[in-house]
Computed example of a mutant assay.
Amino acid sequence: MSSNGKDLVIHTEGLTKVYIMGSTEVHALRGVDFDVHRGEMVAIMGASGSGKSTLMNIVGGLDYPTAGRYTLDGIQVQSLGKNRLADIRNQKIGFVFQGFNLLSRTSALENTELPLLYDRTGSKKKPREEALKALALVGLADRADHHPNELSGGQQQRVAIARALVTNPAIVLADEPTGNLDSRTTVEVMALFPELNAKGIT
Rank of each mutant, 00 (worst) to 15 (best):
L8R: 04
V36S: 14
F97M: 03
G46M: 13
I20W: 06
Y64E: 04
R184N: 14
V77P: 00
G94I: 07
F97L: 06
N197G: 02
G74E: 11
H27L: 15
P148C: 00
E113L: 04
L117F: 12
G94N: 15
I171V: 15
E113G: 01
Q155M: 15
R38D: 12
P115V: 13
L151S: 08
A144W: 09
V9P: 09
R184T: 11
K6H: 13
D145I: 02
M56Y: 04
S3L: 13
V138M: 01
G31V: 10
M41I: 06
N90M: 04
P177Q: 15
E25C: 10
A108P: 00
F95Y: 15
T12G: 03
D119W: 12
K52M: 13
R158Q: 05
K124G: 07
T186K: 00
P148H: 01
L62T: 06
S50R: 11
V138D: 00
M56I: 15
E195D: 14
A136P: 01
A170P: 06
L62Y: 03
I58P: 12
N83Q: 05
R84C: 03
L165S: 04
I58G: 13
G179P: 03
V77R: 00
A162V: 02
P65V: 11
P169Q: 06
T16Y: 14
N83S: 10
S53F: 07
I161Y: 10
Q78G: 08
P194V: 04
L55W: 11
A28C: 13
G60I: 15
A86I: 09
E195Y: 12
G68S: 03
T121I: 11
M41Q: 06
L29K: 15
K52Q: 12
A67W: 03
P127N: 01
I75A: 10
L15E: 14
T185L: 07
D33C: 12
V59N: 02
N111E: 05
K133M: 08
D33P: 08
G51C: 08
L135C: 03
L85R: 04
L140E: 01
V172M: 07
A144M: 04
N149R: 02
A164L: 14
S123Q: 13
K199P: 02
R69W: 07
A141E: 03
G154W: 09
Q76N: 04
Y70P: 07
G99C: 06
E110F: 14
D142T: 08
I44R: 02
R143N: 02
R69E: 15
T112H: 10
I20C: 06
A162G: 01
D33Q: 07
V77H: 00
S50Q: 11
G139M: 05
M1A: 13
I201A: 01
G22L: 12
I161A: 11
S53D: 03
T167W: 05
L135F: 04
L181V: 06
R84D: 05
H27V: 15
S48I: 10
A198D: 02
S50F: 10
H11W: 14
P148D: 01
V189Y: 00
N57M: 05
T71F: 15
G31M: 05
R105P: 01
Q156K: 10
V172S: 02
L80H: 02
E25L: 13
M1E: 09
L15G: 13
N111W: 07
I88K: 07
I161G: 05
N168L: 07
A47W: 13
L55G: 09
A164K: 12
